[in-house]
């Protein structure tokens, strides 16, 4: 019989280097799943939000219902949202993505619409005077001017999605949330702390990345402020 090793894993310490080195594969898989779920849901959310916001801008009557519907969706607690979608998607990654898409819609549509509405009427008229058709006006004038507000919404939606993915642990697709959930059931302190910290780091990194992208694609906002 061999004696139990006396390392930080055996003592169940919060911070444990041995955990990091021995479970590198598990951690990496969880991070990859976390990133995939987040990226996929925010991208799909964006693909749905842009046409919705443009339609709501074009036809004023559509703005009320679109905003009301997305707000109601946002009020539904995440655990409930995943559960309500259960009959549709079963226990799958699609379920988590679908739930997160519905959440990101609220933030994205709201910010996109605010950005489109903030385009000055004079700018629009000047573009029309130059012979811009409605589509060219939208693509080359309105959407670029709405970018700062849209990017702000995208950043909030992404950070929220990173943190909400963890709730997906209830159906087994929660990225780092799976490790937190498993760690809770086995009182594995190092695993819970490491997964939580990684989750916050991903959120911060994603936010900084999008901030960088925003600075790159909207150089005029910096010039105007400075």
């Amino acid at each position: 019989m061999t004696a139990a090793p006396d390392d930080c894993l055996a003592r169940n310490e919060w911070i444990c280097g041995a955990y990091l080195s021995s479970r590198r594969g598990i951690l990496l898989d969880a991070v990859v799943q976390h990133l995939q779920l987040t990226a996929l849901s925010v991208l799909i959310g964006l693909l749905i939000a842009v046409p919705l916001a443009v339609l709501a801008r074009r036809w004023g009557w559509a703005a009320g219902p679109v905003l009301a519907l997305t707000t109601i969706l946002y009020t539904i607690p995440s655990l409930a949202m995943f559960s309500l979608l259960l009959p549709l998607y079963g226990l799958s990654a699609t379920l988590v993505v679908a739930g997160l898409v519905l959440y990101s819609l609220t933030l994205l549509v709201r910010n996109l619409l605010a950005g489109l509405r903030a385009v000055p009427e004079e700018t629009r008229q000047a573009a029309r005077g130059l012979g811009y058709g409605p589509i060219r006006l939208l693509l080359t004038v309105e959407l670029p001017l709405a970018l700062p507000a849209a990017m702000a919404g995208l950043r909030i939606a992404t950070v929220s999605a990173v943190s909400l993915v963890t709730v997906g642990a209830i159906v087994g697709y929660g990225g780092l949330g799976n490790l937190v959930y498993a760690g809770m059931n086995t009182y594995f302190k190092a695993q819970v702390l490491t997964a939580s910290v990684l989750c916050v780091l991903i959120a911060v990194a994603a936010d900084l990345l999008l901030l960088g992208v925003q600075r790159l694609i909207t150089p005029w906002t910096r010039a105007a402020r400075g």
């Binding site: 780092l176 949330g177 937190v180 997964a195 939580s196 916050v200």
Partner: peptide
Amino acid sequence: RAVPTFAVLVL
């Protein structure tokens, strides 16, 4: 917003 509620609860 960046800190997952669920993780804090478990911690």
